[in-house]
Design a protein around this nucleic acid. Structure first.
Length: 466
RNA sequence: GGCCAGGUGGCAGAGUGGUCAUGCUGCGGCCUGCAAAGCCGUCUACGCCGGUUCGAUUCCGACCCUGGCCUCCA
């Protein structure tokens, strides 16, 4: 049923939702700009990986083969600066933060992309592309640099809707005098001794920062890719420059057919960014918040909208996720082990197929949770749970054991002590010593433990409040 | 200055030309020894001003406000 419904994606190129039609349904290609590994990733950095992980899941449910490439930028001046500051080699920096990035992404339930190419593994290919661009008249050498000539490419500015002429007027930085046009950007630049470098026809140097994505997508996905994604701040200049490089290197062939850009995570309505110093590092957040809660939170707003962060948001999502897990646990106990159905509900799928409308999809998921809680026979319960768990599987939520979810995150708690107190309370209850029983409940409450008296005894869970 | 988003109920956040988003919170109820969990009910929502329309939060225009990009940035 759902297979016949089209997938709509908002294409930044056209500024409208379009029906997604792959150039080859048997080989769908997706490229997403990955991290520059020079420090910890903040929660805003996790938004594209979560969104495109979901898109990858969705595409994989409809097409037999989807290749998803997400690069690692491991040559960059910020890495050089971090290495210099910490007096270690750049490899140490990029290895350390690549590993941490992987840990963080795994905690958020993000699967590995099909390919994770690294810039430093593609230097010869970069040199090759630069050579092609020079030969075809789109790039020129000047004072040890190689620059892309924006005036050589008529469509320059089409993605970001910018006029090349405006760029001169609006230029806020000092323009290097060897540039033919202020908008020309670096493909290759000379390196000085502490900086990393490679031999090239233009001397010892390193690549400019836009080149790697053009080169790696060409090598791993081909000259024309289906979908290219990233944050809205990459539209200009990064993606604009990628288009210029790739289209000119490929004799005018279209580079990416659909461009998708996510909005920012904001903090007090301001963009979260390292330069503003208002970032929340994922690695820190994970110390007291489950990755699944962060994932739900990141999906709770539509991907193109800003997502404002606050402590209240975190608490709210924690409670929502706890509630759904509680419903699943109760149904599990009542109706036996519940299993995911083959497919989520049509409403859920329709929401996702409409440009990844995750808030609507989550609303539907919550409706199914309520449906499950209201079920009063096994058949209804299994049907509701099947839809709920299938939806969760696609979107990357509610796949953990509900019992361990509700009791699990209790570091520093002594299970034996909890059980002992519960026994003592139940003894008091039998003796109708309710004052004593309530004291014990309060004592456990203070420990962050919430008691629930059910038909066959007393069970406990950690409190939803942090 | 140029370009681009957005202003929805106590809060978060979808959506629609004329019935319901959903979540969190508050309030009332069911249940409970009391609770918790869950369920049910509930709280004059659509920035401002005009226009189109039988009817606009939804379409059109003006205005106000917020944020983003134009420099590294997810």
């Amino acid at each position: 049923m759902t297979q016949t419904e089209p997938l709509l994606l908002y294409n930044t190129l056209k500024r409208e939702k379009q029906v997604f039609v792959p150039q080859d349904p048997n080989h769908v290609t997706l490229y997403v700009c990955g991290p520059t590994v020079y420090s910890y990733a903040h929660i805003g950095n996790a938004r594209p990986p979560v969104i495109f992980d979901l898109l990858y899941n969705l595409l994989s449910s409809r097409y037999p083969k989807v290749i998803y490439a997400r690069n690692i930028t491991d040559v960059d001046d910020k890495i050089n600066a971090a290495a210099a500051e910490q007096k270690v080699s750049i490899d140490v920096i990029s290895k350390r933060y690549t590993d941490i990035f992987h840990e963080d992404m795994a905690a958020l339930g993000i699967g590995q992309p099909s390919i994770e190419p690294r810039a430093t593994n593609h230097i010869p290919q970069m040199i090759n592309m630069i050579t092609r661009l020079i030969t075809s008249g789109h790039a020129y050498e000047a004072e040890g640099h190689v620059l892309f000539s924006v005036e050589s490419f008529d469509d320059y500015g089409s993605l970001s809707r910018r006029d090349v002429a405006d760029m001169i007027a609006g230029a806020r930085i000092e323009v290097a005098d060897f540039k033919k046009h202020p908008g020309d950007f670096v493909l290759w630049k000379p390196s000085l001794e502490p900086q990393p470098g490679w031999d090239s026809p233009w001397g010892w140097g390193r690549p400019g920062w836009h080149l790697e994505c053009s080169v790696m997508s060409e090598q791993h996905l081909g000259e024309t890719i289906d979908i290219h994604g990233g944050g809205q701040d990459l539209v200009f200049p990064h993606h604009e420059n990628e288009i210029a490089q790739s289209v000119c290197a490929h004799g005018g062939k279209i580079f990416a057919r659909y461009w998708m850009h996510n909005g920012f995570v904001t903090f007090n309505k301001r963009k979260m960014s390292k330069s503003l110093g208002n970032t929340l590092v994922i690695h820190e957040l994970l110390k007291h918040t489950a990755g699944e809660v962060l994932r739900y939170l990141l999906l709770s707003a539509h991907y193109r909208q800003p997502l404002d962060w606050s402590e209240q948001t975190l608490t709210r999502v924690q409670r929502t996720v706890d509630r759904v897990y509680g419903v699943i646990r109760d149904a599990n106990e009542k109706y036996g082990p519940l299993k995911a159905a083959h497919d989520p509900s049509n409403k859920f799928m329709s929401a996702l197929l409409d440009d990844l409308n995750t808030p609507e999809a989550l609303a539907e998921l919550n409706n199914e949770a309520r449906c499950l809680a209201n079920a009063d026979d096994a058949e209804t319960a299994h049907a509701a749970a099947g839809r709920l768990l299938a939806a969760g599987a696609l979107i990357g939520l509610f796949q953990q054991d509900p019992q361990s979810w509700l009791t699990g995150d209790t570091e520093g708690l002594d299970d034996a002590l909890i059980e002992q107190l519960i026994d003592e309370r139940n003894t008091s209850r039998k003796e109708r010593n309710f004052a004593r029983a309530d004291d014990i409940r309060d004592q456990l409450q203070a420990m962050g433990i919430c008691l629930e008296d059910v038909a066959d005894g007393t069970r406990w869970r950690r409190s939803s409040d942090q």
